[in-house]
Simulated assay, not measured.
Amino acid sequence: MQNVLRRNDVEKATGLPRSTIYEKMAKGEFPKPIKLSAKSVGWLESEIIAWQKARIQQRDRVPA
């Protein structure tokens, strides 16, 4: 079973505002949500964690 995060939780976890989340999703730079009902979506916590880890790895890369 995976945890599903609602938008407010995703904003808190990433530090990104709503507009940036949707902008990054449109560019393929952020996980896309899953549809929960006709009017609600959520993000898989595991995908948000993976996105965070990728940002940390990107930060820690040493230029060649």
Rank of each mutant, 00 (worst) to 15 (best):
V41A: 12
N3H: 09
L16I: 03
I48R: 05
K39E: 10
P63N: 05
I49H: 02
W43E: 00
I34Y: 07
S19N: 13
I49D: 04
K12C: 07
Y22R: 05
S40W: 04
K53P: 02
V10N: 00
P33L: 05
A26N: 15
Q58W: 10
E29S: 07
V62M: 06
D9Q: 15
A26F: 01
K12N: 07
Q52F: 09
G28R: 10
P63H: 04
V10H: 01
Q57P: 01
K32S: 15
Q52T: 14
G42I: 01
P63I: 09
S46W: 05
P31K: 01
Q57L: 15
P63M: 06
G42L: 05
V4F: 10
G15Q: 06
G42Q: 05
I49M: 08
P63W: 08
R18I: 01
Y22V: 06
L44G: 03
K39V: 12
F30Q: 00
E11C: 11
K27C: 09
F30Y: 04
K24H: 06
R18S: 05
S37C: 10
A50L: 15
Q57D: 13
R55W: 03
L5F: 12
R18A: 05
R59V: 11
V4H: 03
R6I: 08
D9V: 07
W51P: 01
N8K: 13
R18P: 01
L5H: 01
S40I: 05
P33C: 11
P33T: 01
I34R: 13
V41W: 10
R6P: 00
I48C: 06
R18H: 07
A64K: 14
D60A: 13
S37K: 11
P63E: 12
E29L: 15
T20E: 09
P31H: 04
Q52S: 07
K53E: 09
P17M: 08
I48A: 03
R55Y: 02
G42V: 04
W43I: 00
M1Q: 14
Q58R: 15
K53M: 07
E45P: 04
I48N: 03
W51T: 00
K27R: 15
P33M: 05
R61F: 14
G28E: 12
Y22E: 08
K27S: 13
N3T: 11
E11F: 00
Q57I: 11
I48H: 05
I56K: 10
R6A: 06
M1A: 12
E23W: 06
E11T: 13
E47I: 04
A50G: 06
M25P: 00
A54L: 10
P17K: 13
R61C: 09
S40R: 14
Q57W: 12
T20K: 05
T14E: 03
R61G: 08
D9K: 07
M1P: 10
R61Y: 09
G15T: 10
L5G: 00
P63G: 01
K27V: 11
I49S: 04
P31W: 03
L36F: 08
R18Y: 06
D60E: 15
Q58P: 02
I21F: 02
L44V: 09
V62E: 11
